[in-house]
């Protein structure tokens, strides 16, 4: 499943990141590696972008990019 399918506050583990290579590389270097615990913290008032949280910090990311982050529900 994709990270967008997680409900707010529910945890998951990262399995794979596809899509834009540059973005995938950025996320990986920030520590979104295989097996990292991740959750959705919040949505922007207009529904996009979203805030995801992993390794103890918050990151804003657009939905169109987030849909390439695949997770396994915890």
């Amino acid at each position: 499943m994709c990270i967008c399918d997680l409900t707010v506050g529910k945890k998951g583990y990262i399995c794979d990141i596809q899509g834009n290579e540059l973005l995938a590389k950025r996320l990986l270097s920030l520590g979104a590696t295989y097996g990292t615990e991740v959750c959705i913290k919040n949505y922007a008032p207009l529904g996009d972008p979203i805030i995801i949280s992993f390794r103890g910090f918050d990151l804003a990311i657009r939905k169109k990019d987030a849909k390439y982050i695949y997770v396994k529900e915890a």
């Binding site: 973005l23 950025r26 910090f57 990151l59």
Partner: peptide, 8 residues
């Protein structure tokens, strides 16, 4: 075009 990710 650069991907949009910003730390809060």
């Amino acid at each position: 075009e650069e991907p949009f990710v910003i730390e809060l």
